[in-house]
Computed example of a mutant assay.
Amino acid sequence: MPHAPLSLPRRALLLAALLPSPAVHAQEAWPTRTVRLIVPYAAGGFADTRARKIADALGKVLGQPVIVDNRGGAGGVTGTDVIAKATDGHTFGFGSPAPLVTNPMLMKKMPYDAEKAFKPIILIEEAPLFLTIAPNQSFKSVKELVDFARANPGKLSYGSSGVGGAHHLSAELLAYDTRTEMTHVPYKGGALAATDLMGGHLAFMFEMGYAALPSIQAGKIRALAVSSKKRLKVLPDVPTLDEAGIKGFESYNWLGMIAPASTPDAVIARLNQAVNEALKQSDIRQMIEGSGGIVAGGTPEAYGKFIAQERAKWGPIIKNAKITLE
């Protein structure tokens, strides 16, 4: 028996059900032109090398060019402010601890509200730090270093790339957890501090893997421990700080991708999917893991929760040590 023809309202409803929703359409249509990826640090550094590799992979996945735009200055704040104020729908950037978590605690004035100005896209990498010591130091373990620090308040000196950075705060976390007093010597860059460490002018230093590994492997410095939750494949014999007796110790100089708060959720989802896909590529995984990093990935929600946990973690450390950038 033939079916009765559909009325116009029923035809319209059926057609609407068959067509993609506006959100799906927006997700499929985006991007419509070149995507700009802001790196809030100078060219050639840790964040920049990651960004350029990932930008190339993203361009292939998204079907549009992805260009890296370096906007260094003010500990990452200058470039991160560019991300916060972008309104073109095609500008995003790298998020890291200083401009998103610690600088808002260290600076009296910020050009953006770090908790409201952005949407998280994805955590890309967790980069742990190695606790390294000078070759002229006799410490054979973290316990020996901590025992000396307890018996000699202020006599152990450690270097950093500057006040409030991952090198500095990792050492402050160690001092906080062990209830010890150590002397901070800030430098204008991690390389300068590392040089003085190798020369025996500093007792120890927390260093990122990409910078420390060549010197460790060459015997110029020694690694007592690493700040990750698990041991790293690049140096499997180096224990974690948790294994070394500092229970629960973790510290990372992480990288993720963030978007202006006005970015549609469909675009966030598209970028998240694209970066997760890029992080599966062997060359990108080798770039991260080969320098002591940990490949992350995951959902925007997981990255947002991670950032919130970082704020809760570092706030008491900064307050206890009375650290400021003013």
Rank of each mutant, 00 (worst) to 15 (best):
E28A: 12
A29Y: 08
T34M: 04
V35I: 04
I38Q: 02
V39W: 05
G45T: 04
R52A: 03
K53R: 15
L58V: 06
K60F: 11
G63A: 08
Q64W: 06
P65F: 03
V68W: 11
G72Q: 02
A74R: 11
G75C: 08
G76T: 13
T87Y: 14
H90N: 11
F92I: 07
S96E: 07
M105C: 11
L106N: 04
M107T: 11
L123W: 02
A127G: 10
F130C: 02
T132S: 15
P135A: 03
F148I: 13
A149K: 01
R150L: 08
S157H: 13
G159R: 00
G159C: 00
S160T: 15
S161E: 06
A166R: 05
A166H: 09
L174S: 02
E181H: 15
V185K: 11
P186I: 06
A194R: 06
A194S: 05
T195G: 14
A211S: 08
A211M: 11
L213W: 13
P214D: 06
L235H: 14
D237G: 12
G245R: 04
G256N: 02
M257H: 14
V267Y: 07
A269C: 08
R270E: 04
Q273T: 12
K280R: 10
I288T: 06
E289K: 00
G297H: 07
T299V: 05
T299C: 04
Y303L: 12
E310A: 09
A312F: 04
K313Y: 12
